[in-house]
Amino acid sequence: MTRRALQPLDITLRHGQRYQRVRRGFLALSVALSFVLPLWHLHSLDVQGAGLAADSPWARVAALLPDAPPPFFGAPTSIWVGLFELVDPLESLGVALFQGVSWHWVWTVLPGVVLVLLLGRFFCGWACPYLPLLAASNASRWVLTRLGLRLPDVKVPRATSRVVMVGLLVGGSLLGTQLVPLVYPPALIGREVFRAVFYGSLGAGALVVAGAFLFDTFVSRGGFCRSLCPGGAMFSVLSNLSPLRVKNERSKCTDCTVCDVVCNLGQSPMTNRLDSGCERCGRCIASCPTRALSWSLSRPPLARDSKAEGPP
């Protein structure tokens, strides 16, 4: 039997199960919300000719939902929860480039940005509705490799995502429209579900999501999230300040590479080379056989730099 490269599915998450359960629960909630909310809204409409047709395939699911309208509305990239708006920082930036900054803008952007500043790029690992597709893509790669297929794993430079991000903002301002919502998977998935439920059709966004899935499966493992996603780039820029880090206690580490393999975003916890691209999914910590990895709260690197330059 030939030796195969280690893949994420080969690795068992040994501990930190509670963290993983909470994360998966949160993710499930996010995905469920983006699928159920449109259905619930349509179901709750009580005007003749509106609402859900009785013969639609969704009607059976909708029958389980309450008749009252849902307590919140929105899609994964812009959701209204009680007092707070959680709007995606990148989409907000796109709007600010056109509209300028207003108090309303600050109020809608602040909750999300504060969360990212504290927790880093957590959205990608905790809430992005593309994550189940990424997991499916990892699983497909695992199966296809078992079947003897040799799949390439192209390492696209991670800075590409920042080029994509800036390109979309510049291109959008030239065209006079928002381009980010047209290629950003969480926005796309939210919107395509709406389209499917409300109008029974899919848009071009479904093709983009499918393309990202195929890219991840056949070209580069987790490559879209790691190297192309413009929203991920924005989160990375913001999470430079986040104090929550993964720390490797080198004396316990056996250099088994398991943590590096399990990471979807090309981080290297084994060599303590983690940067703002870490999505705080905690899978590296859970996979470490010798428990060398742990969460640590550290002063943000930028604050450290300024300390180092100042007088003692």
Binding site: A50, G176, T177, L182, G190, F198
Partner: peptide
């Protein structure tokens, strides 16, 4: 320029009169 295509307006519209541009146009959202 200000619309991020979040679909919320369509979500709360009681008569579902709000539609979206054709699937392959820049106005799709």
């Amino acid at each position: 320029q200000a619309c991020i295509g979040c679909f919320r307006c369509a979500e709360v519209c009681p008569t579902t009169c709000i539609r979206f541009g054709s699937a392959f146009s820049l106005d799709q959202a």
